[in-house]
């Protein structure tokens, strides 16, 4: 862990590095939903509603999906806003997606199946929505493990970035998992699916069509009058 003290001895928030100053705050914000769940389980179970286990599963699943989409939004946002430092939040968001995914799986194993391993394995094999959800979390694991600077060095930047392209598949599996499990109301799976489609669509556009015209296109986008003008 890096110290909050910058190299020149001043505190981080006093330096010109706003990212470093913001990181602890962002970390706490990301952790807050989990802390809130822990608080409710210990001190206020009624706040979790009539089906507390289901609430925990929904909250952790939603958060995992949201952090995953947040991770995928970093690159487009950097390009669009021009604020390159955003990249320094990406690992944290990705690790929180994994963290909430692990909690989600743990809740499923403990609450839904009461640690009945054969039943869990049968569930994973038999039910497509469990299969894809489980696959997404399994695929996330190597990405979480190799998220450190040391692993980037060890793998080499190119291999590392190739490996981490798996995040696209993971996000698609996540949306499928949600889509297939709901009984009737597809509102939220559709919202996540639409956001993911935009994020992936932007990349396709950026890589192909946008390649030759990237510069002029961006200039045009900036020149366009906003609603306030």
């Amino acid at each position: 862990m890096r110290s909050a003290r910058a190299a020149d001895g001043r505190f981080a928030w006093a330096t010109s590095d706003p990212v470093r100053a913001l990181k602890p705050l962002v970390f706490l914000l990301c952790l807050a939903p989990a802390l809130l769940l822990v608080h409710d389980v210990l001190y206020d179970p009624e706040a979790l509603g009539a089906n507390p286990a289901e609430t925990i599963e929904h909250v952790t699943g939603d958060r995992s999906m949201q952090f995953l989409l947040g991770t995928l939004a970093i690159t487009p946002l950097r390009r669009i806003t021009g604020w390159g430092k955003l990249i320094r939040f990406r690992r944290m968001l990705g690790l929180f997606a994994f963290f909430y995914g692990v909690l989600h799986l743990a809740a499923y194993i403990a609450f839904d199946h009461y640690f009945d391993v054969p039943a869990i394995l049968a569930d994973i094999v038999k039910r497509p929505f469990v299969t894809v959800g489980f696959a997404a979390l399994v695929l996330m694991t190597p990405l979480a493990v190799t998220s450190t600077a040391g692993w980037i060095r060890r793998l080499g930047a190119q291999n590392w970035s190739r490996l981490h392209k798996a995040v696209y598949a993971i996000a698609v599996l996540g949306v499928l998992h949600y889509w297939w499990l709901v009984k009737r109301d597809l509102t939220w799976p559709m919202i996540y699916g639409a956001i993911l489609a935009v994020l992936l669509g932007w990349r396709v556009w950026n890589e192909t069509l946008g390649r030759q015209r990237r510069r002029p296109a961006r200039v045009r986008a900036r020149a366009e009058p906003g609603p306030a003008e």
Partner: peptide, 14 residues
């Protein structure tokens, strides 16, 4: 999903 077990609300565990 399986119907072998159920969660008797407000239990955590099914």
């Amino acid at each position: 999903w399986s119907q072998a077990r159920e969660r008797r609300l407000p239990d955590f565990f099914a």
